[in-house]
């Protein structure tokens, strides 16, 4: 694990980025802005257009959100209980969750871009 100060610098940096990225992300689904209804914004056709137009921006959002969320979660869990075994578990959990989310998110994008093919 990196130094605590490095982690928290990341937490603050990603927080600033999220404030911008997430506003756009939520606005994309807000009725009346880019789509007339929320339901239209989650149709498969809209999703496809999003992935094709903002694909790599979505990966950036994914990375930023995962870092911010997991550093925050790690802090909450470290406050909940103390002890070396718990700390090791928390670090493992955070790394595992991070790998899962980044892996799955990237996989989804690559499938949409036609670089990888979904089995179904």
């Amino acid at each position: 694990m990196p130094r605590e100060s490095t982690l928290h610098l990341l937490l603050y940096a990603t927080a600033g980025l999220l404030a911008v990225f997430l506003t756009i992300h939520v606005a994309l689904h807000a009725p009346g802005l880019f789509y007339d209804t929320y339901k239209e914004s989650v149709q498969r056709e809209s999703v496809r257009r999003n992935y094709e137009n903002f694909g790599w921006a979505l990966v950036a959002l994914l990375i930023v959100a995962v870092i911010h969320g997991l550093v925050g979660l790690r802090g909450i869990l470290l406050e909940l209980r103390q002890g070396p075994r718990w700390e090791a578990f928390v670090n493992f959990l955070v790394v595992f969750l991070g790998a899962y989310m980044l892996g799955l998110g990237t996989y989804t994008l690559l499938t949409w871009l036609g670089i990888m093919h979904f089995g179904g």
């Binding site: 130094r3 605590e4 100060s5 982690l7 802090g75 470290l78 406050e79 700390e87």
Partner: peptide
């Protein structure tokens, strides 16, 4: 201070 249970908590 710059520890798991230091200033960042």
């Amino acid at each position: 201070v710059d520890d798991k249970h230091g200033v960042w908590r």
